[in-house]
Design a protein around this nucleic acid. Structure first.
Lengths: 220, 220
DNA sequence: TCTTTACTAGAGAGATCACTCTATTAACAT
DNA sequence: ATGTTAATAGAGTGATCTCTCTAGTAAAGA
């Protein structure tokens, strides 16, 4: 009897999934057809359905993969000491510059808005991310980096909303000045999150004072 | 010879458009078919194409209508004296509570991300809204209500991003506490926008001091 | 070596989509 | 009253979509 080789099987599945991600990024969940995915992956329809039971299964696998990756990214962020710099670096790299993240994020949210199964996945993911941010905020609060008067969960919600919103920025304005936008986001976050003691001077110095004691995590 | 009655024609067009909006809200731009729209409007396909040359034309008309309505909403906001309260009232009513706005906004952005024609429309709209917010911010700055150190255009971009992000919040978390979220958004906006002089006290008093001199615009 | 089963191809079924074409009815101008 | 054209219906067209079915090939265990 011949047995299925799990390693080979998983590798092939991964290849198909990558092709599918390219297609979905290019044309959207509804715009990309299984035929497109087959062409992109260089396989036949029968072959595709040997690895995935349906189109929605491909999308779900893709979302799971995306969630894994964003969790990994988050772990990396968590090693940083400064919430604001960490968040900004993440926003600039992933939200403002990385097109697929912008598109798939929007597509996923739009789909979740009308597909209950999809919504479940997004809600679960959001919950996980919120918990991570809230934990981090709590830690930052106990270290005096973040205003202890802010509710961590609600603040995490707002941070997530800011990330979502920044993903829409380059779409709304393709000529967006990313450096300037990042700088303004930084100002906003510092003023929002800093403990009140740090906010007692004039506008510009206030920003500096709030961010100086924190380590930078710029990736480049 | 019989002439077309522009009033009657426009009224019928409007009815069909309303039906289309309901369909697009329910199923998305790609998910809603012309057959669905016909059923919803109670007309035949031939009839639909008597009023609109194509499906994309219906969507464009819908977006134009949305832009008109958001411009109207904005005019109303502009009559308010306080940016922050005005923005918050708008966010709470339109973004956090009004489902169609959440869905159609996401769908429109997702479509714009891959359809250049669509992108043009969204970009034009965004530009108009940004100009409105920037004007308002400038006025608020000259009145000492908003930190004059903030660049109005860049700040407007961020406000738009916040609005976009808040529209995703109820989708990411259907059990969202809207009151609490509005309160946190308010804290964030006050700390972000207030002139530096207002930010010299402790956390809670700071919020109060920044918001007290401004007139409230609560709709209810 | 031989059998079994995974791997792979591709035709095509059945549904659905955006849209067209033809035909009928109804309202206005003369 | 009558001709002209708008308003409306609905069958149908060709394209495309997801997914199935049959069948051939290759590899691993007996």
């Amino acid at each position: 009897m011949r047995k299925v080789d799990p390693v080979k099987h998983e590798r092939k599945r991964g290849e198909i999934l990558d092709a599918a991600i390219r297609c979905f990024t290019r044309d959207g969940f509804r715009g990309a057809s299984t035929t497109d995915i087959c062409t992109e992956a260089g396989i036949s329809p029968g072959h595709l359905y040997h690895y995935f039971p349906s189109k929605i299964a491909i999308i779900e696998a893709m979302i799971d993969l995306g969630l894994c990756r964003s969790a990994e990214r988050f772990e990396k962020i968590l090693t940083a000491t400064d919430v604001i710099e960490a968040l900004l670096a993440d926003i600039e790299e992933t939200s403002l510059r990385f097109r697929p993240a912008q598109i798939l994020n929007l597509d996923g949210l739009a789909e979740a808005a009308r597909n209950p199964e999809f919504a479940k996945i997004i809600e679960r993911h959001t919950e996980a991310v919120r918990r991570m941010w809230a934990d981090f905020l709590r830690r930052a609060q106990s270290q005096g980096r973040v205003d202890p008067g802010l509710d961590p969960e609600a603040t995490a919600n707002i941070l997530i909303a800011i990330i979502d919103g920044s993903r829409a920025m380059p779409i709304r304005n393709p000529k967006l000045d990313i450096k300037q936008s990042t700088a303004h986001l930084k100002t906003m976050l510092i003023r929002f999150l800093s403990p009140p003691e740090a906010g007692s001077a004039a506008s510009k110095p206030r920003d500096q004072r709030a961010s100086r004691p924190l380590t930078l995590v710029r990736k480049r």
